[in-house]
Structure formats: structure tokens, C-alpha cells
């Protein structure tokens, strides 16, 4: 797949900017994956919790199966008020679960 990576991105970005656009999309894709990898290593190494470790591994596996992720990230970060509301509610719930349940 790695040898066709440019073609894949070219196909996905037909309606957007070409050339530099593809370059920056590729950069952000690699950055995203390396951030994720480092994050997973961090969680696995420092967290004392089995649930958290498994969660991190599952998320990593899930993301690796959906490569290229960068378009999905972009879709989840639009200016829509409903998406933001959803993430805010999710965060509030997550914070309460973490602090009260103590992962």
C-alpha cells in the first residue's frame, strides 16, 4: 500500500487543492499516526490500569484499519454546533466517570 500512497491521497482529494494540499495531507497523516503510536506507548507504559491499556490498543488497532485517518479527523472537526455539543457532553461524562469512578 505504501507505494500507492500518493495515488490514494490524490483520489481522495480530487475536489480540493492538489500539489501542496496532498503534501500537507500526507504530512498530517504521518504525524497523526506517529502521535498515536507514541500516545499508545505512553499509556501502556505509565497507566496501571488494564482497561486503559486495552482501550489504547483497541483504539490504535481501529485507527490503523481506517487509514487514511486525516480525512475522518477533518470531518469530525467541522464548525457544526451539533458536533461540538456532542463532544462537550461526552467530555463532561468522561470527566465525571474518570474522577468519580477512578480509572
Amino acid at each position: 500500500m505504501l507505494d500507492r500512497v500518493y495515488e490514494i491521497f490524490h483520489e481522495k482529494m480530487k475536489d480540493k487543492g492538489q500539489g501542496m494540499g496532498i503534501g500537507s495531507a500526507l504530512t498530517s497523516e504521518f504525524l497523526m499516526l506517529s502521535f498515536l503510536l507514541i500516545g499508545t506507548i505512553l499509556v501502556l507504559r505509565t497507566a496501571n490500569s488494564t482497561i486503559l491499556g486495552f482501550g489504547a490498543l483497541i483504539i490504535l488497532a481501529g485507527v490503523l484499519f481506517t487509514v487514511p485517518t486525516v480525512f475522518k479527523v477533518e470531518k469530525e472537526n467541522t464548525d457544526s454546533i451539533n458536533l461540538s455539543s456532542f463532544y462537550v457532553a461526552l467530555t463532561l461524562a468522561l470527566l465525571l466517570i474518570i474522577f468519580l469512578g477512578g480509572i
Partner: peptide
């Protein structure tokens, strides 16, 4: 635990922010 949570949100912001900036 507060520090770990802050760290988690901070890393998430760093990742999403820089990836979105590139786009």
C-alpha cells in the same frame, strides 16, 4: 489524577490542533 487528565486533554489538543492546522 487531575494532572494525568490535564495531560491527556493537552496531548489530544496538540494532536488535533496540529493536524487540522496542516489541512
Amino acid at each position: 489524577l487531575l494532572k494525568s487528565v490535564i495531560l491527556g486533554f493537552a496531548i489530544f489538543t496538540v494532536v488535533i490542533g496540529s493536524v487540522m492546522a496542516l489541512q
